[in-house]
Amino acid sequence: MFSWIISSEQTLSAADTARTAADTLHTASDSLAAGAHGGGAFDFNELLHHIYDAPKLELPWGYLHLPHFQLLGFEIVLTKHIVFLLFAALLLTVGLILAARSNTRNKVPKGFGNLVEILVVFIRDEIVLPNMGKGGLKYLPYLLTNFFFILVMNLLGLIPWGSSATGNINVTAGLAIIAFVMIQFSAIRAQGLGHFIAHLTGGTHWAMWPIMVPIEFLGLFIKPFALCIRLFANMTAGHIVILALIGLIFIFQNTAVGLVSVPLAVAVNLLELFVALVQAYIFTMLTSIFMGMGIQTEGHEGHEGHAQEHH
């Protein structure tokens, strides 16, 4: 139980840090942009806007302004992140259907189908089965989609003129909301609503309930909230570091700085490639662990206390 309290504090402080960092950068960029404008050479805000969402796409020859239209009475506004979100979904659908076709046709998987299968087997054997047991296999399609969708969105941000939809807190919030629903749904389905609610007491004496119930209740929300912030912060951080490194060239007004900045930015880019995979893995694994806590009640400390309470 303590770990949850600690994790909630961590989450809050992580959010604070992210906010402070973003604020600092924003203010700094504003003043820089003003300075750059003075020189008339470069608009630093344009550079920073690379990580903001906007209703336009960055293309090699300029910007493509995205349309907004009415559909069934809804005002639909397309933005860069929505486009990359949908592009990732499309890419994933086409790619995975091709992989599925290749795997069903070839007895021995090869090429892209083999790569997909390696990842699928990894998620099944290293994430789902250890954390959720055999009962977790029916949630495998959700977790697989989660992993691959996040991975593709992360990787799209590393392509020139591309953008990570996962670098937007709203996208990660959407994913976290789905994770929240799946975690509670799987727990209620596995142990029944009564047990699920009883778990909120943490199996403690009734006198502790006024403390335990709010903590356990908050814990339900903090876990996916941490997922949301973690993914967002990780995907944004790399971009901000690269922008900061490139920004050094403009701060010092000296192209020689590029000799240091550019290799460092390349290194950070490679690091981001790694982070893209790791974050997709972590998001999926944590979701799987949280779901597993609800499914495998026998392995959960709260349940043991709960059982004693019944005696």
Binding site: T93, A99, L144, I177
Partner: peptide, 21 residues
């Protein structure tokens, strides 16, 4: 954008669940 994400994800789970996974 949250709604876009959720909708896309749900559609993706259904489509991939049937045709890929």
């Amino acid at each position: 954008l949250i709604m876009w994400t959720i909708t896309t994800f749900i559609v993706l789970v259904l489509v991939l669940g049937k045709f890929a996974w």
